[in-house]
């Protein structure tokens, strides 16, 4: 079959990290499943435009799509921050994916993205992020006065509410700042990647499984391009993203467990695991911040209402 669509898709991951490899494999599978009618080219973070600029670039037709953390667009509308990472809402990837697929999340995303020229295909996630710390943290009380790095979005606000002192340094200075004890802790990424980057060499008290953050990565493409696609290709793309979600969850969880086992056997690193009580306490602080974000825009309010309705119906809050 002749090639009908080429999609240049920029990732929010760097070329050398496991996540990007999984995304490249997804791109290949799409080619196979469509019999070559769709060719997806995965581009690493910042290769065409900077990570926070992909939404505009897709709308302008410069890029065709992205696989990216939706909270990067919190500055465009707080709704993106709330739906991408409602800190405290999810304890496992499957919970978030169910909400997106069946609980109104997909419709919300499209109501936010369609007017901006994008079509949401589906969500994936690298899973619960582990917390990097150079001081022992065993509960919410230990967060008091903790100098920690947090990125834009809700995470920063929640930690501030929990009594920590968030510092807004960029990712490129996390390592040196942890190493020299400018900061005590950092919101980085999943355990295995933190480990590979050497963060545990300088911050020996990681909290795993994480308690604070599980980012939603959206797979979206230019809406005009989507609308021009025949139904079978649209369906294949949707299915392939559902599969990517499970692939990413499974393989990164395996990598995490492998890295944890290695860290345990090698020693030197003390892995902290919070009790259910402490997790609940943190969750309560986090959910109290949702309302504040909801008040910032109409769309954020809609996200808030849908989310609370779903969580209540499921008995999760």
């Amino acid at each position: 079959n002749a090639q009908e669509f080429t999609l240049k898709v920029q990732s929010s991951d760097a070329a050398g990290v496991p996540n990007f490899e999984l995304e490249q494999e997804w791109a290949k599978r799409v080619g196979v499943m469509t019999g070559g009618r769709v060719e997806v080219e995965m581009l690493p973070v910042n290769s065409i435009v900077e990570h926070a600029e992909t939404q505009d670039a897709i709308a302008a037709g410069i890029l065709d799509g992205h696989i990216t953390d939706t909270s990067y667009f919190s500055g465009k509308d707080p709704a993106f921050g709330l739906i991408a990472n409602p800190v405290g809402a999810w304890s496992a990837p499957s919970e978030m994916l169910r909400f997106v697929q069946y609980g109104g999340g997909k419709e919300l995303m499209n109501s936010l993205l369609n007017p901006r020229g994008l079509q949401f295909i589906g969500a994936v996630t690298p899973g619960l992020e582990a917390f990097v710390s150079s001081v022992p943290l065993d509960g919410v009380a230990d967060l008091k006065g903790l100098k920690m790095r947090a990125p834009e979005g809700m995470v920063q606000q929640v930690f501030a509410a929990a009594g920590a002192a968030p510092v807004n340094i960029p990712q490129s200075e996390v390592f040196t700042s942890l190493d020299k004890k400018v900061i005590d802790a950092a919101d980085a990424t999943v355990f295995s990647t933190n480990q590979a980057m050497g963060l545990h060499d300088v911050a020996k008290h990681p909290v795993y499984p994480g308690f604070h953050s599980m980012p939603m990565l959206e797979v979206s493409i230019n809406k005009t391009k989507w609308d021009s696609m025949p139904e079978d290709i649209q369906a294949i793309l949707e299915m392939s993203v559902r599969d990517l979600a499970q692939d990413m969850d499974a393989r990164l969880a395996m990598k995490d467990m492998e890295a944890v086992a290695k860290a345990r056997s090698e020693g030197g690193v003390t892995i902290h695991n919070w009790s259910a009580e402490e997790r609940a306490k943190f969750r309560q602080i986090a959910t109290s911040q949702w309302e504040k974000v909801a008040a910032r825009s109409d769309d954020a309010k809609r996200v808030y209402d849908t989310l609370v309705k779903y969580l209540t119906a499921q008995g999760l809050i």
């Binding site: 070329a15 050398g16 490129s172 390592f175 040196t176 190493d179 590979a196 980057m197 060499d201």
Partner: peptide, 19 residues
Amino acid sequence: PPSIVLIIYGLTANVSIGD
């Protein structure tokens, strides 16, 4: 060290910045 070139490399290549 410290070097932004090495930090950017470390983040891209997923290798220890300390190393």
